[in-house]
């Protein structure tokens, strides 16, 4: 190990200890030293993750590996209690429910809930070298049901409904040219701007769809329409990029507030 690594480690450990003791001494509560340790740990992990921006280092690796382990177990405990104990067991039998101290939910078709258990066990057959093919059945079930569900849902929401919402009148409140020119203005609710916007929407949707056309060569007028399509797509992506920036910065402010208020108590 390099000398600097050892020195850095010593300094960080010392700072951790100092923070722990200081937080423990000045925190009120039933277990101040535990609380002090936890806040210091949280701050240490926050800084360890942020240090990744400089470069990969042992502290980031530590936080990353800890994060992976803890979060995987957290998801498992949560899933076990909420799905297996909370949802499945109360429907299986009153005996098992009593054992797990949850209340049995009576139903006429509860025996059907043994099927997902069988599917689940088939899935676990993957671990055996010879029964692996059985694990495809539960996968087939999951993929089949969701494919059927998505097929009709998206056909309705992204196909039929989109046709009706693309149909916009291009001539709004049209009362002849004289009326149009005498009322000409550039306000957002004015006739000109509204008509122009509707035209842009219509052309935008059409050209956008043309851009996603795969089985025809994008040349000639078709190519030009497709080019307009990708331009409009890019403008949209830019706008949505710009829109997100402020939200992201406020997240950072939140973390910095934690460090300076909850840990260092410099600001209140």
């Amino acid at each position: 190990m390099k000398k600097t690594t050892i020195i850095t480690f010593a300094v960080i450990s010392a700072l951790f200890l100092v923070s722990w003791i200081a937080k423990g001494m000045f925190t009120e509560g039933s277990s101040p030293f535990l609380d002090g340790f936890l806040v210091t740990l949280a701050a240490f992990l926050t800084l360890a993750i942020m240090s990744f921006l400089y470069k990969d280092n042992p502290y980031y690796k530590f936080a990353e590996h800890l994060f992976v382990g803890v979060s995987a177990a957290y998801a498992m405990c949560l899933g076990f209690w909420s799905t297996i104990v909370g949802n499945l067991i109360p429907r299986l039998s009153s005996g098992i429910s009593e054992f797990f101290k949850v209340s049995y939910i009576e139903g006429d078709y509860n025996f059907i809930y043994f099927i997902p258990i069988i599917f689940g066990i088939l899935l676990l057959m993957r671990l055996s070298p010879r029964g692996g093919w059985l694990s495809r059945w539960p996968l087939a079930f999951i993929v089949g049901t969701t494919a059927g569900l998505n097929f009709v849902r998206y056909l309705r929401s992204d196909f039929i409904n989109q046709v009706s919402s693309t149909i916009v009148p291009l001539m709004i409140d049209w009362q002849g040219f004289g009326h149009f020119f005498s009322n000409l203005n550039f306000s957002a609710t004015g006739q000109l701007v509204m008509m122009f916007s509707n035209l842009v929407i219509f052309i935008g949707v059409t050209c956008g769809i043309i851009y996603f056309y795969f089985s025809k060569e994008h040349t000639g007028w078709f190519g030009r329409a497709s080019k307009i399509g990708i331009w409009i797509l890019m403008i949209t992506f830019g706008a949505s990029f710009g829109y997100t920036v402020m939200g992201r910065i406020s997240l950072l402010v939140g973390r910095i507030t934690f460090l300076f208020r909850d840990w260092l108590e410099i600001i209140s």
Partner: peptide, 30 residues
């Protein structure tokens, strides 16, 4: 205006494309 007009148009074009992609893929799967 950008958010309400070109954005709306492009979103709709993308949504139609994605929708058809999902529909076609689901159908192929089924």
């Amino acid at each position: 205006w950008l958010m309400n007009v070109p954005n709306l148009a492009a979103q709709r074009a993308i949504v139609i494309g994605i929708g058809l992609g999902i529909v076609a893929t689901s159908l192929k799967v089924i």
